[in-house]
Structures are given as structure tokens and as C-alpha cells.
């Protein structure tokens, strides 16, 4: 044993390193980590405590059923209100005080319908500058039901 004392010291050094690692780990890994999965359990409460931004389309429809009826008949039926109008929970809570700003359709529509070869061919897409020449889309299309009346054969 006397002849191997240096090896014992090396082993002790490794052991000390390992213990230091465990101590540091204990100190820096947040409490509750791994309780529900590979994340900090407290994160759920933190997220829950954050103010709600989106009201949800059910809330919108409770007041704006006229718009909802138009939307439900068109191609945009599956698009949620706040996908275009942005988060509106504050408006839902104080409808008179907080008024949403209508989106600029030239920017909004192009974010989905600007032509791109990576999009499926059947998806309606245009080169906006050629298609409208800078005019807002809503000059011709009703955003909630965008198919033109002539196209509908009416």
C-alpha cells in the first residue's frame, strides 16, 4: 500500500472532482428539474403566471358573430381570428377602451399568399406587386371570405 500511495491520492483527486461536480450540480440545477419531464417543474407556474395575450376565437365569436358567419362560409374558415388580428385578450377584457388596429392587408395577405416555389401548387399564391400593383388586397377581396363574387359565379 505504501508503494501505491500516489495512486490513492490520484483516486482521491478524482473522487474530490466527482464530489465537487455533484455539489455544483446540486447548486445550479434548478429545483424541481425532472419532476414532470426534462424541464424545470416551476416553469409551468411561471408560464401560468404570465399575462394572457390571446383571447381565443370563441371569445371573439361571442361578440362578432356577424364576422364569424362570413368567415365560416369562406376558405379562411379554419383560420383563427387572432392569427390575422393579433393577440386580443386586452380588447376582450376592455372592449371600449382597447380598440384593435385593422391589419394592413398588403402586408398581411402576402405573408401567406406571396408566391414561393416551395409552397404546394394548389395553394393560392400571387406575386403581390404584379397582382395588385400596391393596392390593398381588401380593395377587391373580403379578407374574411376572400373569393371574389365574380369567381363564385354569382
Amino acid at each position: 500500500m505504501k508503494e501505491a500511495v500516489h495512486l490513492v491520492r490520484l483516486a482521491a483527486l478524482f473522487a474530490a472532482g466527482f464530489v465537487a461536480f455533484l455539489v455544483i450540480r446540486q447548486m445550479v440545477v434548478p429545483a424541481g428539474f425532472g419532476k414532470y419531464g426534462h424541464f424545470r417543474a416551476g416553469a409551468l407556474d411561471d408560464i401560468r403566471a404570465r399575462p394572457i395575450s390571446y383571447a381565443g376565437h370563441g371569445t371573439c365569436e361571442a361578440c362578432h358573430d356577424d364576422q364569424h358567419n362570413v368567415l365560416a362560409k369562406g376558405k379562411h374558415a379554419q383560420v383563427s381570428c387572432e392569427a390575422c388580428h393579433g393577440p386580443q385578450n386586452r380588447h376582450a377584457e376592455e372592449p371600449d377602451k382597447v380598440k384593435p388596429v385593422l391589419p394592413d392587408t398588403r402586408v398581411l395577405c402576402a405573408s401567406c399568399h406571396e408566391s414561393n416555389s416551395a409552397k404546394p401548387k394548389k395553394f393560392p399564391q400571387v406575386v403581390a406587386s404584379d397582382h395588385s400593383g400596391g393596392e390593398p388586397c381588401k380593395s377587391c377581396h373580403v379578407p374574411h371570405n376572400p373569393k371574389l363574387s365574380t369567381e363564385k359565379g354569382q
Partner: peptide, 19 residues
């Protein structure tokens, strides 16, 4: 780096070699 051990006897070096 010696970890405080100056032992380089034949036996200790043999042990080192084996390990």
C-alpha cells in the same frame, strides 16, 4: 503534479506500469 509523492522506487514504478 507529483501529488506530494516522491516515491519512484522500483516497486512503485512497477505498480504504475501495471495500472
Amino acid at each position: 503534479l507529483t501529488l506530494g509523492s516522491q516515491n519512484i522506487s522500483e516497486r512503485s514504478l512497477q505498480i504504475d506500469d501495471r495500472v
